[in-house]
């Protein structure tokens, strides 16, 4: 464990908690893409099946349980409890165009052709593109609530910190996982446009609005 991975995990945890509290407190999921949240629930489910087979540390196990629990709770709030506030008309990204290619790629490019490893690879590739429905929805509505931008900021920051963690681990431990690194680079690049808007607008107290 290094400081970059720890702050990355805490940034990820912050994002998940911010979103869950935003929906719970405001009793509304307006502006939130339910499709992205379903994809994230799929990412955690397929990646953390090793909860049943391997014990690494209390930290590792507890964080995985928290991530899975919060992501399913978020999906539940969006599609069940606060379903009336779900903005389905703007959450129209065709997720099959993400899941099918990612599924195919995880069979073609992986470290080991075993069920757990293919599911892990699938979750890595899926996580790289899981935010697209959310970014697409913001581009369609032309704006995002400020709390939603903070959620996206911490979510994007977490994988950027992981990239530094991988540089650190390669240099000090000789560890590197090409699949995770390439997917992590793609994932972080997808946030660059948002990061620019976040820094130039939200941090200056303005609302995030895209030229519709």
């Amino acid at each position: 464990m290094n400081i970059f991975r720890l702050t990355g995990d805490l940034s990820h945890l912050a994002a998940i908690i911010i979103l869950l509290l935003k929906i719970w407190k405001s009793r509304s999921c307006a502006g939130i893409s339910g499709k992205s949240q379903i994809l994230f629930a799929m990412v955690f489910t397929t990646r953390y099946l090793d909860l049943l087979t391997a014990y690494i540390s209390l930290y590792n196990t507890s964080m995985k349980i928290i991530y899975i629990g919060c992501s399913y709770a978020t999906v539940y709030l969006i599609y069940a409890k606060f379903k009336a506030t779900y903005d389905g008309n703007h959450d129209t990204f065709r997720v099959e165009f993400l899941v099918v290619p990612v599924g195919g790629l995880s069979f073609l490019v992986n470290h080991d052709f075993s069920p757990l490893e293919i599911l892990w690879t699938f979750s890595i590739y899926l996580e790289a593109v899981a935010i697209l429905p959310q970014l697409f929805m913001i581009s369609k509505t032309g704006e995002a609530e400020t709390i939603t931008t903070h959620y996206l900021f911490f979510l994007g920051l977490y994988r950027a910190l992981y990239l530094i963690n991988w540089v650190w681990r390669f240099y000090f431990e000789g560890f590197f996982d090409m699949i995770a690194i390439v997917a992590g680079v793609v994932q972080t690049i997808l946030y660059c446009d948002f990061f620019y808007l976040y820094v130039t607008k939200v941090l200056k107290g303005k609302k995030l609005s895209l030229p519709a």
Partner: peptide, 10 residues
């Protein structure tokens, strides 16, 4: 397939 990396990351 190269050897499987230890999955100690989240």
């Amino acid at each position: 397939e190269d050897e499987v990396q230890a999955k100690d990351e989240l």
